[in-house]
Computed example of a mutant assay.
Amino acid sequence: MWSWKPSSAFKPTMIRRPPTVICYICGREYGTKSIAIHEPQCLKKWHNENNLLPKELRRSEPKKPEVRTITAKGFYDLDALNEAAWTSALSQLVPCNICGRTFLPDRLIVHQRSCKPKAAK
């Protein structure tokens, strides 16, 4: 005879994402192994793009945040590291002097071509 099994027999398994690290320069997520490859390339790209900007939009080089939070097991606290990296990436954004929205400097130039002050009522 056929018997029906309760739904507990068909538990969906949770798929855990591998841990990721946020790049302090661009704000994108990378695996814990590939971040070491990405960061030097990202910094080189940042320098190339920064040198092409007008002098008034050039920024100082982003500094890698130092997070000294180590867990009881001797690992870095990825949440604290990612929070510091995300804050660093956000600090790279420049506000538009017309509307106040923030952009990467190369995108701000494009935005300012079409950004117009609001007409007074």
Score class of each variant (00 low, 15 high):
P65A: 10
K63S: 13
R68G: 12
D106P: 00
Y30V: 00
D79G: 15
A9T: 12
C96F: 05
V110C: 02
P18T: 11
K44D: 07
Q92G: 02
H47E: 09
E66I: 11
N48K: 15
A36P: 03
S88I: 02
Y30G: 06
F10T: 05
K11L: 05
Q112K: 09
P95S: 10
M14W: 03
L104A: 10
I98K: 07
I109D: 08
R101G: 02
I22F: 10
M14R: 08
I22L: 09
Y76L: 12
H111S: 01
P12H: 08
E61M: 03
G74M: 07
N97G: 06
T20G: 15
C99Y: 05
P54Y: 14
E66A: 14
L81R: 12
C42F: 11
E83P: 00
L52N: 15
G74L: 05
I15E: 08
S7T: 08
F103V: 07
Q41S: 11
R101N: 09
S8L: 02
R59E: 04
L57D: 05
K64M: 12
I98V: 09
I15D: 10
S8R: 02
C23H: 00
Q112C: 01
E29F: 01
K5A: 04
H38S: 05
F103C: 06
V94R: 02
L108G: 03
H111F: 01
N82D: 10
P117D: 07
P18A: 11
I70E: 04
T87F: 01
E29T: 05
P54N: 13
T71L: 12
R17L: 11
P18Y: 10
R68T: 15
A120H: 04
F103W: 08
R16F: 03
I35D: 00
I22P: 00
K33Y: 12
E39C: 12
W4F: 08
Y76H: 03
R68Q: 05
P19L: 04
L104N: 08
S114F: 01
D79Y: 13
A89R: 02
N82I: 01
L108H: 10
R17A: 13
L43M: 12
P40R: 11
T69K: 12
R113Q: 09
L81M: 08
N48T: 15
H111T: 01
R107C: 05
C115Y: 01
Y30K: 06
A84C: 07
N97Y: 14
K63T: 12
D79V: 15
S7F: 01
K63Y: 09
E56M: 13
F75T: 13
K118C: 02
N51A: 15
R28I: 07
